[in-house]
Design a binder for these strands. Sequence first.
DNA 1: ATTGTTACATAAGATTCTTATGTATATTTA
DNA 2: TAAATATACATAAGAATCTTATGTAACAAT
Lengths: 111, 111
Amino acid sequence: MSNNQLYRGSLTTIIMRLLEQKGRMYGYEITQKVKELTGGTMDIKEGALYPSLHKLQSAGHLKVEAEKVENRVRKYYSLTPQGEKEAVNMMQELKDYMENMQAIINPKLSF
Amino acid sequence: MSNNQLYRGSLTTIIMRLLEQKGRMYGYEITQKVKELTGGTMDIKEGALYPSLHKLQSAGHLKVEAEKVENRVRKYYSLTPQGEKEAVNMMQELKDYMENMQAIINPKLSF
DNA sequence: ATTGTTACATAAGATTCTTATGTATATTTA
DNA sequence: TAAATATACATAAGAATCTTATGTAACAAT
């Protein structure tokens, strides 16, 4: 993902958010989109991505449809109704995380 | 730390930043300060804190001084010169992380 | 006398990631 | 045309970070 431990734990949030916005994406497309959006600094590894997608799927947050495009198989993922709720949840948790980190890093009148 | 995987990987950054600001803190004090700064939502577990402090110390980022206060031992940690540089580094990496997450979550003209 | 707080520590297990490896097709480049 | 790169999936072994559980020890409060 990056040679930085901070990214640890944020992959599922990223996947859920991209699918919330785009509706339907396949795995490889997600890696490319993230690379594009972060100017090349974030590089999602396949060894992290695919197990993560499978876990979200078996948790009932994603559904998958396999399609053959240009003689290659693609697995398109999208949010289930339950996944839509979970995506909203995860976005709130990311917001809370960011605010908490800001509160620690730039405390208001605490030091 | 929190029932949220996003916090995974941010403990060392938090420790380094608090020591950068306060100069000198002991383990238990760090847990209380973080609780205070985040309104009780972040709760650093001892099983995460102490191994993390030991690792930062053996990496040369922290130095430790044991003191007996009210008949109880405290281990005060502070940044080494090398640790000061590493703290600046970590703050930049946190900033980059936050910006990258923002770019994914709220993309500018990409969807 | 028991519970809660302060203060340290470590071990076992869970989770998430990296690295390595594998399969397969298509395109580009040397 | 052979080799390298890109596209597209997958899994296994090991690393890193965390939680849970447990332990020691002194002090305060109920």
